[in-house]
């Protein structure tokens, strides 16, 4: 990418108003300046925030706009990670090809998940995606010859050009900006509106003549594609993959980030990812009971800001302005 998609050329970017474009540009510019003030390790954390932000956003496409919370996206994410590491470390493919194959594999897996899951909703959807994710985890754990089993796989996945912390961060930031914009366009498109319609009343959409399962299928697959992008980036970030990357905990973490940021806010995903990763890192430096602190924080968020951090801020601001 050579050009910032958020650059203030609103006439070319359908749907992006002048003000939104300006805010987006400010955020991206501020984010790209971060490495100049942060230490290397913190740049690494910021990179992780971006990657998990993309994952949480992809979950938000379904949860916030189609009303279906997936617990299988960690697995889709991890499939991309596995494929990218396998292709570079074992098959010796160049990074670009591996990246493409990883995203493709994740999209394919998402399509299979979608076929099985679109006819369900609510808790059944949750359980079905959870089960499908567990299957992926089981395969990664037991198929030792290919996946390396419990030990996982290692390799020099990251292209030489991006070896530095800063270079990689900027690359991920550019990627995040592109996919964020794409996701934003996606949920604002007529197709996205249809998804929202399905969320609000499936039966009404059906009686209006919309093919509900087909819409959900496409929505799920597209969401899986974005999760795959995040997973492929994660492979380059860690140069390593093991079953914990496809485990249920990964899916749950993505969902929690999305909820903490705010369901249906899309960009809140980055806020949620930042909040959780920062909390994990700061608190774990002081106590080994950091998971407890994390849990309590969640409970507090759910009680005082059930609409998520971004949602809460937005409400507070709009109330004040009024």
């Amino acid at each position: 990418m050579t050009m910032d998609p958020h650059a203030p050329r609103p006439s070319l970017l359908a749907g992006l108003t002048g003000r939104a474009a300006a805010i987006a540009a400010v955020v991206v510019i501020a984010a790209s300046g971060l490495p100049l003030v942060l230490s290397n390790y913190q740049v690494g954390l910021a990179t992780e925030v971006l990657i998990f932000g993309i994952l949480a956003m992809s979950i938000d496409i379904l949860a916030g706009f189609a009303g279906r919370t997936s617990l299988g996206h960690g697995a889709i994410f991890g499939v991309a990670t596995y494929v990218v590491v396998y292709c570079t470390a074992q098959a010796g493919l160049p990074p670009v090809a591996s990246f493409a194959l990883g995203v493709l594999a994740a999209t394919a897996v998402a399509a299979v998940f979608a076929l099985l899951a679109v006819r369900t909703s609510g808790v059944y959807f949750l359980l079905l995606t959870l089960a499908l994710g567990m299957i992926v985890w089981g395969v990664c754990l037991r198929w030792t010859q290919v996946t390396g089993g419990e030990n996982g796989m290692r390799g020099d996945v990251r292209p030489v050009l991006l070896l530095g912390h800063h270079a990689f961060y900027w690359a991920v930031l550019a990627g995040a900006a592109i996919v964020s914009f794409a996701m934003w366009r996606f949920v604002r498109s007529p197709f996205g509106l249809t998804l929202r319609g399905i969320r609000d009343s499936e039966s009404r959409m059906r009686s209006l003549g919309y093919n509900v399962p087909l819409h959900l299928f496409i929505g799920f697959t597209v969401s899986g594609f974005f999760a795959g992008v995040a997973g492929a980036l994660y492979a380059m970030f860690n140069n390593f993959v093991s079953p914990s990357t496809v485990a249920l905990a990964q899916s749950v973490e993505g969902v929690l980030m999305m909820i903490a940021g705010g369901v249906g806010t899309l960009f809140g995903a980055f806020v949620g990812a930042a909040a959780i990763i920062a909390l994990e890192n700061v608190v774990s430096a002081y106590t080994e009971r950091w998971q407890m602190v994390l849990g309590v924080t969640f409970v507090l968020i759910m009680i005082f800001a059930p609409e998520g951090i971004t949602g809460k801020l937005r409400n507070m601001l709009s109330r004040k302005v009024r």
Partner: peptide, 8 residues
């Protein structure tokens, strides 16, 4: 698996 990750 933790050791191998750190070793890498």
């Amino acid at each position: 698996n933790t050791g191998l990750a750190v070793a890498n």
